[in-house]
Design a protein around this nucleic acid. Structure first.
Lengths: 193, 193
DNA sequence: CGAGCGAAGCTAATGACATTAGCTTTATGG
DNA sequence: CCATAAAGCTAATGTCATTAGCTTCGCTCG
């Protein structure tokens, strides 16, 4: 029997492909092994286990997403940038329905690439907000608002939580426009609750 | 050996309690059975299986959430209503970290109570938007925006996706204020994309 | 009061998956 | 060539979900 010639990379990439096909929740070491033409335990030569594979998949997905966000933001500002980044985000989630949920895990502090990718994605958001004059605590709040809105939309859309998929593009455009409105008129925080 | 005296209700309620303690992803028929002092297969006399239990848990959670949203909206309008419902939503998710993710499943069309509960929750949102003069397609888009933002925030907060939990209350207040701004200045949709 | 019956609960068996241990074999570098 | 590290395998264990089929409780009705 010739060697399959696997590497940790190859395993993670195959897992990513498989996740996009069958869904993240159905991603299984057994299925990945089958895809790679290898017995299940053989994977342990390349990944530490199912949890670790999930983490590495997250790192891959966050890096890809951050790259697309960053590239979407390049050469744009203000509302254009906002919309381009939001569209890139939604586009990534739509094209990678298995990777996207994986990307939601908190970055593994022991994986510098993962942490760095997360920072990059966040930077893309902060860069947009700077265009609206939002900095400091306002930027923190606004960034959380942006992430919440886009992530929430994308998640609900993917799960079918919105009901019939009528007018999804329009609704997303309106969500982005609403964010633009809110960022241009960012509310002064009221004192302690 | 005396009978345990279970009912489908009792099983679902125990599952809900357990999910809140250990997390939805760790919810297992085996654990529920253990909690109820019963052998695992005995549960099948009351629920059709793990998937069905999840669905019934979803129905329970959506009903509870809808009730809290509706009661929060009672006697309030405009920004007050917006904030009260948003707070109720976030509060429910915070108090029920296991039920809340369960509630995200699409309602089972064969469970009228589930469908009805979902409609109730949505109605609470539409009622708020009516206070902003948003109806028709605008209301659809605005409702999706509201749901996206609140659900996204609550999800990211629960998963630790925001990083250190500094200033979470303030950020949420600002998110709600941003929604208020957006709803008061709802953008006219631009033509087809 | 007792017989019978339906439902509740049990044990046993099967099958998917993850994980660990320990063996075999393939490449490859000296 | 051959020695060795790593790649891959089989076997064993444990958890969980599910189905089948048995036992027994507890209620209802004669």
């Amino acid at each position: 029997m010739p060697r399959a010639g696997l590497t940790p990379q190859a395993v993670v990439r195959e897992a990513a492909r498989l996740a996009d096909e069958v869904g993240y929740e159905k991603l299984t070491l057994a299925a990945v092994a089958g895809r790679l033409g290898v017995a299940l335990p053989s994977l342990y030569k390349h990944v530490r286990g199912a949890d670790a594979l999930g983490q590495q998949l997250a790192a891959l997905a966050v890096a890809e997403l951050a790259a697309e966000m960053t590239s979407a933001a390049a050469g744009r500002a203000g509302r254009d940038a906002l919309r381009a980044v939001a569209d890139a985000w939604r586009g990534y989630a739509g094209r990678h329905p298995g990777r996207y949920p994986a990307a939601q895990q908190v970055p593994d502090p022991d994986d510098p690439a993962h942490v760095e990718a997360g920072r990059l994605a966040l930077d893309a958001v902060y860069a947009i907000l700077r265009g609206y004059g939002l900095t400091g605590d306002d930027a923190v709040d606004a960034a959380r608002t942006f992430r919440s809105a886009v992530h929430g939309f994308v998640t609900l859309e993917a799960s079918g939580g919105f009901g019939l998929p009528r007018g999804m593009d329009r609704s997303f455009d309106q969500l982005v426009a609403a964010l633009d409105t809110a960022f241009r008129n960012w509310p002064d925080p009221v004192g302690a609750r």
